[in-house]
Design a protein around this nucleic acid. Sequence first.
DNA 1: ACCTGAACACCGTTCAAGT
DNA 2: ACCTGAACACCGTTCAAGT
Lengths: 218, 218
Amino acid sequence: MARPRTPLLSRTRIQEAALALVDRDGLQGLSMRKLAQELGVQAPSLYSHYRTKEELLNDVVDRITADIDVSGFKNGDWRHGLTVWARSYRDALAAHPNMVAFIASGPGRREEALRRADAIHGGLVSAGWPARLATMIGASTRYLVVGAAINSFARGFDADARVYQDRYPNLSQAHRLPELAAEIDNDSFELALRAFIAGLETLYPRQATRAEAESRHA
Amino acid sequence: MARPRTPLLSRTRIQEAALALVDRDGLQGLSMRKLAQELGVQAPSLYSHYRTKEELLNDVVDRITADIDVSGFKNGDWRHGLTVWARSYRDALAAHPNMVAFIASGPGRREEALRRADAIHGGLVSAGWPARLATMIGASTRYLVVGAAINSFARGFDADARVYQDRYPNLSQAHRLPELAAEIDNDSFELALRAFIAGLETLYPRQATRAEAESRHA
DNA sequence: ACCTGAACACCGTTCAAGT
DNA sequence: ACCTGAACACCGTTCAAGT
């Protein structure tokens, strides 16, 4: 009964089941015992593939953030690169709202995250931004994305209902509040991103235009 | 032995002990049993004052965020109001890094949070911004603050060490990395805030100037 | 009204044992 | 190498009982 000819589990299978469980029942709803049951196995079996629950969750994070689009800097257009990155980053988080708190809080895995951070930094530098400013711009954009993801999806809509009702007193249908909240969240994120980029141009006209000029040559 | 003449516990005493415990041992390190022990009492006693652990934590959050400065809008200067609010908000979170993940993830208590949200919104509107834009500006700023707090404080510095070392290869003393990380975090936050405000002026010159003109009259 | 001891239904993780 | 049953040291919370 123990040790079947082909392994019952694999890291991939465990990751997928864990993510599905978190999506369905929330981060709190994921326990090694429930996960094992979902996979038709006993809880200790999981420890043949992962040393801790946290190690597993970090792999799930890598899986979620694997598709973040960092390619927008290719032609040297930093505004486009930053916008594409930020939007795809936010979309990746939005697809798994129950994971956002964990993604945001932990130090995160280095394998993928570091590679992406380097891509952003490199894209900004090669577009004309000095190294230190490039680091700050990357960090600022991350603040925006993570903050937006947490405020949008991790928070319950019912909690925000009263806020929106105050703002739009003529909104009669309470069941449309989630829609409206999502719309305001999206508009706020886009405003923040556009204003931030426009502000960079105002505060650092030389770097911003140099970056623009170089993108024309490319 | 049960039921002393003066109660051993109070909501205030429980809140303070809980916050001290989280500050010392992290959010994971707070359990009702450990908290009770710290207060010289048995765990079930806590449930005479709080119905759940979450209700207690929400009160702790209120205690932390009580000092956020919303008064900067008084003279109608929305840039000043926004800056003061954002900085004091971030400072409040920075004072209790182990609470940031919880503060960010839950819907939060309504009593305090709603009042502040209204103050910000009212301040922006009376400074000349239309209601919908005021809502978006408030949300965007919150994204920035929460995102910055999470990336700065909840993440371990050792995890970021490699990133900074790449950026500053001539940094020889590894023990100074925390300092440097804090400095970059702070600079990035200030950049994000300034660029956002400058961007608002570029994108909405009429509202921004109208708000400015009104602040002169006040 | 406030605190206690005992208990319930859970956790993550370890470990010897099986194949 | 991979899975199991049993166990350890924890959780949050409930509840009858005491004063």
